[in-house]
């Protein structure tokens, strides 16, 4: 009996070694899986809700994922207009911190920052303008008024040309808001062609740049 037990000792040692190695490998794999798992799903959802709310409340009207500079987001405005932000949500845009805060959840979104081009060429009231931005935003049709200030449904804008090249056209009339990417370096000549002479359209040129909106929040 004693001889048999002693002969099994090396086998037992090898067995323990194998089991320990397997346990180590298993813990390593499990640790990696745990580290990779999304453990902040609820907090991430909250952060995304805050980001969506922020863009809805502070975003450029009629645009998706766009903010007009200056952005106007601060702690009190955010908490008042985006209740999901609570007291802890933090917001940064590019390198700038807009609202101090922290949280386990994080939402990142690429947004467009529209900076109005300063200067006297922002108005398209006379149907013509020279602009030097990278995007022109035109509000057409719905704002058409006659010379005395009353609305005139018979007037409409059919053509918009940039540097003589048609970029928008509709024989029935262009209505609504349009963003026109302006080609190359400015300045560019934008010509809005109304059917009447008294139509007024509003237009503004923007310089457009991208920035990452980061929102942190807790569940």
């Amino acid at each position: 009996m004693t001889g048999r037990a002693q002969s099994n000792l090396p086998a037992l040692a090898v067995s323990l070694l194998l089991v320990s190695a397997a346990l180590g490998a298993a813990l390593g794999v499990a640790g990696g899986a745990f580290a990779a798992a999304d453990r902040h799903a609820l907090a991430d959802q909250r952060a995304e809700a805050v980001a969506d709310g922020l863009l809805r409340e502070f975003g450029a009207p009629g645009r998706e994922n766009a903010l007009v500079a200056p952005v106007g987001v601060n702690a009190s405005a955010l908490r008042e207009r985006v209740p999901a932000a609570g007291r802890s949500a933090g917001v940064s845009l590019g390198n700038r911190t807009l609202v101090e805060g922290s949280g386990a959840g994080m939402a990142r979104q690429l947004v467009s920052i529209l900076t109005p081009v300063p200067g006297p060429n922002r108005s398209l009231a006379d149907g013509n303008a020279t602009v030097s931005g990278s995007v022109a935003r035109l509000e057409l049709g719905s704002n058409a008024t006659n010379a005395t200030g009353g609305t005139n449904d018979t007037e409409r804008v059919e053509w918009v040309r940039v540097d003589g090249r048609p970029v928008l056209a509709n024989r029935s009339g262009l209505t609504g808001t349009y963003d026109i990417p302006l080609p190359g370096e400015g300045p560019h000549r934008i010509r809005v062609e109304p059917t009447g002479t008294a139509s007024r359209v509003r237009g503004v040129a923007y310089n457009e740049s991208g920035a990452v909106l980061r929102v942190s929040a807790d569940a």
């Binding site: 099994n8 086998a11 037992l12 090898v14 067995s15 323990l16 194998l18 089991v19 190695a21 397997a22 346990l23 490998a25 298993a26 813990l27 794999v29 499990a30």
Partner: peptide, 19 residues
């Protein structure tokens, strides 16, 4: 050896759970 056999089964079990 029964010990080695048990160790082998144990290893397989651990690796299966981890995988």
């Amino acid at each position: 050896s029964v010990s080695v056999l048990e160790a082998g089964i144990g290893m397989l079990l651990l690796l299966a759970v981890a995988s």
